[in-house]
Design a protein around this nucleic acid. Structure first.
Lengths: 311, 311
DNA sequence: GCCTGGCCACAACCATCGGTTGTGCCCGTA
DNA sequence: TACGGGCACAACCGATGGTTGTGGCCAGGC
């Protein structure tokens, strides 16, 4: 299937004849004829009945036409998604299934007319670089990590404090607890593979460890959340942290438990970052939406690192 | 933009390297490299960063990826729409904006999972032929026209009586009437361009004329409903009939009036036609849906031609 | 009833494209 | 430092898709 052939088909169907379609496409009538013939050969179906006064759609052609138009629409949007001018709002998130994705879903429900592209860059440093270069329009990140304040041209606002929960298998010592305090976690092994030193998320957990004396291991390669959950479920001595709003593919029959953490509740501080001069209209819409659904940040009984930007 | 290149892009993005993508696509690594390079050239953007250990998506590549997947999905559905096996349910309607379209919208709301293709064939005779050949699965038509009973292998059921309304411009003698009787219409000129002798809709209006002594002119070419509405709006001596449920693009500022017709109310009898042996599962769903929303047909005070199939 | 005009398909020809093989460069690792 | 894995470039070649030229078919007019 060739998109040029599909476009030719649509034009010919609208024109009702190959000749006019050829003129519109600035090719010869014979070229149109060959394109349509090739499309028909590829689909193994007749799309037009050729008459002396033009070409008329067959029933199959009629059925195919709206799909062809849709195909061209989607192709156009695909091209637009990588073209700087009038492209969808491009937002970076820390993980596709983590807390800010909920915010984005809410935004999409409230403003379905806004086109969105979601990407993931490495860390807040890369995000800031991408925002400054115009590669992305906004980023949900924790800011700023120690010793690296945000540049002047990057603005940010706290939008969500996401409580961390303890995730354990059924055999874990704390598996049956309704909730646990941070003090209770001292001495337990908490496993979070994939933490990369130097990133803002690593800094967050470093601070958490230093402040409350926890034991967090980030050894071993990160094989994805499925493998992580499998391991935690099968290893009574291991637990892990997980954002309250994260939507994982929840394995059934593993007996996994999500346990709230209290006294205080560690919360991951998501901020929205954007460039001061970014003119994308949808960025203003997103900011207005987030401002209109005021987040509960720095609530009593919650903990964030000292270096987190306050409102 | 070449769909093969898009497919290659998706496979390479999933694989994380060109080599593996090449194996999966049964081409050489060099071919993959060239396809991706061509796609990047066409989009004027870099989609991968090439490393010694594979190829990684750029931010643009990440943004493009879901659009590429969507593109392939739509292409697949487009191909399926003309392939006999497991294609969408293909339904013929008499006009895209007439009454049965409302039924189809209701069906689509109730069963959004059912894929539909809507086509228009010439008349009930062509529809029966298309149903018997398998070109379409069902048809909304008035059956049967005089002297042409339905063949045994075609089944039908009345699904909707659509009242006809009078459509006039603001200067028409009946423009301010709340309703009109058929007897009142005698002597008025009713213009319905595009009626083709020999079709079932022509037979319907022929019967209407013969029974109530109306004057219906079908002279002149049919330039579409827009032109019809324009003419009716500007010509005080002209009116036309229109189905109560038809959804036209309603021109504003023309002062067009829709006036119910009574004593009796002429109704257009839509039936669903299908082939006795058609195994398409969605056809059963459609029939069940229509049966579950029982139509009011042959209601008191309505008129249909004698030759219309009764329940 | 024949001629004419409009429209599409087939044939021949040719440039471009997209595939292959062969090879070189780069980078992470033993 | 040598090695291996992965990607890009070059040369080559068949397939593809464009063009021009031509013929057939059908509808409408003389």
């Amino acid at each position: 299937m060739d998109l040029d052939a599909v476009r030719t088909f649509v034009v010919a169907a609208d024109a009702g004849q190959f000749q006019e379609a050829a003129a519109e496409l600035a090719v010869t009538q014979q070229a149109v004829s060959k394109r349509i013939a090739a499309l028909e050969r590829g689909l193994d179906v007749r799309l037009f009945t050729r008459t002396a006064r033009g070409a008329q759609l067959t029933i199959d052609g009629q059925a195919f036409l709206p799909h062809a138009r849709e195909l061209l629409r989607v192709a156009e949007r695909a091209v637009a998604s990588v073209h700087a001018a009038r492209r969808p709002l491009r937002v970076d998130v820390i993980a596709s299934r983590s807390g800010q994705s909920g915010l984005m879903r809410g935004f999409h429900r409230a403003h379905p007319e806004v086109d969105l592209d979601v990407v993931m860059v490495f860390d807040v440093e890369a995000a800031v670089g991408a925002i400054r270069s115009g590669a992305i329009d906004a980023s949900f990140r924790a800011v700023a990590k120690p010793g690296a304040p945000l540049p002047d041209d990057i603005e940010s606002v706290r939008v969500l404090d996401e409580p961390l929960q303890l995730l354990t298998g059924p055999g874990h010592a704390l598996a049956s607890a309704r909730s646990v305090t941070l003090a209770q976690l001292v001495g337990h092994r908490i496993w979070m593979p994939g933490i990369v030193p130097g990133t803002e998320w690593a800094a967050y957990y470093d601070d958490l460890v230093a402040r409350f004396g926890l034991t967090i291991e980030s050894t071993g390669p990160n094989f994805g959340s499925d493998a992580l959950l499998d391991t935690v479920a099968d290893t009574p001595a291991l637990a892990t942290f997980m954002g309250e709003h994260s939507r994982l593919v929840w394995p059934t029959g593993h007996g996994l438990r999500r346990i709230p953490v209290t006294d205080p509740t560690p919360v991951y501080p998501h901020s929205l970052l954007w460039h001061r001069d970014n003119p994308h209209p949808a960025l203003a819409t997103l900011r207005a939406h987030l401002a209109a659904t005021p987040p509960a940040v720095d609530a009593p009984g919650t903990w964030t690192p000292d270096w987190v930007h306050r409102r």
